[in-house]
Amino acid sequence: MSTTIAPPAARHGIPPGLRAARRTATAATGESAIARWILIGIALAYLFLFLGLPLFVVFEEALKKGVGAYFTALRDAELLHALRLTLLVAGIAVPLNVVFGISAAWAITKGKVRGHALLVALADLPLAVSPVIAGLTFMLLFGMQGWFGPWLRAHDIQIAFTVTAVVLATIFVTLPFVARELIPLMEEQGVTEEEAAVTLGASGWQMFRRVTLPNIRWGLLYGVVLCNARAMGEFGAVSVVSGRIRGQTTTLPLHIEILYNEYDFTAAFAASSLLAMLAVVTLAAKHLLERSHHAARARLIQEQQEKQP
């Protein structure tokens, strides 16, 4: 084909005949305009129906009785307590899972420990377990009939139906998010840069802060965003272990359930709107980070290919 023979410099001035040939070439591997618009129409209708409308209805229901009623509902003391608890739980669970994610990724990818496939599978396991079952396992540990139940009662320690249990259940369900972003990323990056830093006399902490962290920052942030969204929104697991004690162990999602079951729809959707806004911010952050994260990875892969003879 003559297009492949043409040098790159000639590309800007493609002869008209060639341009036409190229257009027919793409037409053979594309769909007709009508088919294209029908497919786009169906896909967008599906996304609008299943994703757009539910998001819209949250705000519509929250503002149904006016802006005044919306803000009154948001100032409710129990709702504010639930919001604070949600922030607290995420504030504990997310940093711990960040430390775990970095630590697991370091040991697995830089230490080349044996049996790392098993570690990766274990770190992913919480994603495959129903949240209700996750909650159940903590009740089997700390509940009255649980393993530690009698011991805890003898020492007058309560874990089931407390904030501690809510935090533990949240850590469990959000455990994989940071690790599963960092493990493939750090695997691709290899060990050469860190080895060079150590050889040049950097301490472990210096090496981590100056070499590793800048390399993984986008992937790390990406994992944190996803981890946080799940931590603040977790419902099933938290519902089991919290005992749903109103005003004490109810996080925002649990408070929404209480309000909804009391037919206080304005308040339920006002509370929902806060979490929906979090979801929108999460999506925007995810979308932006994906660009940096993927660009960084693409650059890395390209560099590696260039290095290979």
Binding site: F235, I256, A284
Partner: peptide
Amino acid sequence: DALVDLPFALPTAVAGVA
């Protein structure tokens, strides 16, 4: 494209009531 991930980001309780 960004909206596709909404079910990951929107808490399930919110999705449920909506």
